[in-house]
Simulated scan of single mutants.
Amino acid sequence: MEDQRVAVVTGASRGIGRAIALALGATGHAVVVGYASNDAAAEEVVNEITAAGGRAVAARADVAEEGDVAAMFDTAVAAYGGVDVVVNSAGRTALAPIAELELDVLDAVHRTNIRGSFVVAREAARRVRSGGAIVLLSTSVVGLRFPRYGAYAASKGAVEAMTLILAREMRGRDITVNAVAPGPTATELFFEGKDEATVEQLAKQPPMERLGTPADIAAVVAFLTGPGGRWVNGQVLRANGGII
């Protein structure tokens, strides 16, 4: 299948990344399921894609390590011949007031979210074929400014900046670069550390009065990386149900 498009998705063993990998597999992409540590969860995603008639392989990688990321892209080339789509969904969060956040926690968040996004984006810029697409994951909290999200929002603000610059650096190569910024989305990462009242409050904020789902975000990514999204470039899409 030499004409099949090939997608590399990081953070694809759970949550939004998993939904993105499944969505791209369902739209005909061969998928490299990038993941940090959970072998079994990654293999489950691979098995789900292949059971539906798609092609997929897992690749373990720390997104902040350039050798790991290069090897993940090498896996895509060896298995499927190249890379057309890259989605960096790997991320880390930490909730605390800025006055109380430990700096080692700040460093860990920024290592994954800023350095990791940069390493993946850099490799994508070097490897993605003409006609391809690069999507980085941000967060609507950059605009919503929720208290306790200072470290996380700061890291994702950096992701948005590099997205907009990389889109312009890809001039002449027919490669789109965009960011998707989910609002509150029902994932394990979102529910962690939140009581029922907090979850209910956040779910009521969008006019649609519910949390987003990983499938909601995956559908936006599938659009941006598909034929219908070719004229969307250098943008940050706030996929949050209208929350303000």
Rank of each mutant, 00 (worst) to 15 (best):
R55I: 03
A56M: 07
A56G: 04
A56Q: 05
A56S: 12
A58L: 07
A58F: 03
A58C: 07
A58M: 06
R60T: 01
R60L: 03
A61N: 04
A61M: 09
V63P: 02
V63W: 01
A64N: 07
A64S: 15
A64I: 04
A64G: 15
E65H: 11
E65W: 00
E66Q: 13
G67F: 00
G67P: 00
G67Q: 12
D68W: 05
A71L: 02
A71P: 01
A71N: 10
A71Y: 00
A71M: 03
A71K: 11
M72Y: 00
M72G: 02
M72D: 01
D74S: 08
D74T: 04
D74G: 02
D74E: 12
D74V: 00
D74I: 00
T75S: 10
T75H: 01
A76I: 05
A78S: 15
A78L: 07
Y80N: 05
Y80E: 03
G81R: 07
G81C: 05
G81L: 05
G81K: 08
G82A: 08
G82H: 05
G82N: 07
V83L: 06
D84W: 01
D84R: 04
V85L: 10
V85H: 08
V86A: 13
V86Q: 05
V87I: 14
V87F: 12
S89R: 01
A90G: 11
A90N: 10
A90W: 03
R92K: 14
T93E: 13
T93I: 11
T93M: 13
T93W: 06
A94K: 10
A94W: 12
L95Y: 04
A96F: 03
A96D: 15
P97I: 05
I98V: 15
A99E: 15
A99L: 12
A99H: 06
E100V: 06
L101E: 11
L103M: 15
D104G: 00
D104A: 09
V105D: 15
L106Y: 14
D107C: 08
D107L: 12
A108Y: 01
A108L: 09
A108Q: 12
V109M: 13
V109L: 13
R111G: 07
T112K: 03
T112N: 09
N113V: 08
N113W: 07
I114L: 15
R115D: 09
R115G: 03
G116R: 08
S117K: 08
S117E: 04
S117C: 14
F118A: 14
V119N: 08
V119T: 14
V119D: 03
V119F: 04
V119A: 09
V120W: 04
A121Q: 09
R122D: 11
R122I: 05
A124N: 09
A124Q: 06
A125V: 01
A125S: 12
R127S: 12
R127A: 11
R127C: 08
V128H: 08
V128T: 10
V128G: 08
R129P: 06
R129M: 01
S130Y: 00
S130N: 11
S130R: 15
G131L: 02
G132W: 07
I134C: 07
I134R: 02
I134T: 03
V135H: 06
S138R: 05
T139N: 07
T139S: 15
T139A: 13
S140W: 00
S140N: 10
S140H: 02
S140F: 03
S140P: 04
S140T: 06
V141S: 12
V142I: 15
V142L: 10
G143I: 00
L144A: 10
L144I: 08
F146M: 14
F146E: 13
P147R: 02
P147A: 10
